[in-house]
Design a protein around this nucleic acid. Structure first.
Length: 175
DNA sequence: GTTGAGCGTT
């Protein structure tokens, strides 16, 4: 049986047909625009997105191309798989994941790097279900979050904030 | 124009 945390991922070696194809082995210099140029030959596109590394902002070398029609996706998979693009042989197949995950709230929600170890059930929530059900309220109940919240703002921060807003003088604009 | 194998948290 498939584990819960892999439930949103399908069969990797033989993905079910769907309107989205994954494109792998891309050159770092291939842009979404390049991909549009190539893949729109097979039918109208709903979206194209390259996956970027969060820190370096470089392409991770793969992308997802969404066709409006599943048939065009199939066509693209058959015709573009193995084709050369920007000097790289690309692999094209139906996507096994459905979409990007829901963006994180911008605060660390993973395992604390100190303190008692928790079982994976306690922190490995899928964000896909949205903040309201999965992440947020449960997160606020965790002790490491409370200890973070309890901290009073540092005087340094308040000073910096004040001086910045004071330096912003108001001058009416003339036309 | 750092390889290469890769299924996504702008």
């Amino acid at each position: 049986p498939m584990s819960n945390r892999r439930r949103h991922i399908g069969n990797r070696t033989n993905p079910d047909p769907n309107g989205c194809v994954g494109v792998f082995g891309l050159s770092l210099y291939t842009t979404e625009r390049d991909l549009r140029d190539v893949f729109s030959k097979y039918g109208p596109l709903a979206d194209v997105c390259i996956v970027y590394d969060q820190q370096s902002r470089r392409s991770r070398g793969f992308a997802f191309v969404y066709f409006e029609s599943q048939n065009d996706a199939k066509e693209a998979k058959e015709r573009a798989n193995g084709m050369e693009l920007d000097g790289r042989r690309i692999r094209v197949d139906f996507s096994i994941t459905k979409r990007a995950h829901t963006p994180t709230p911008g605060i660390y929600m993973g395992r604390p790097t100190y303190g008692p170890r928790r079982s994976s059930r306690d922190y490995d929530r899928g964000y896909d279900r949205g903040y309201d059900r999965g992440g947020y309220d449960r997160y606020e109940e965790r002790d490491y979050y409370k200890s973070y919240k309890r901290r009073s703002p540092s005087p340094y921060y308040r000073g910096a904030y004040r001086s910045r807003s004071r330096s912003r003088s108001y001058s009416p604009r003339r036309y």
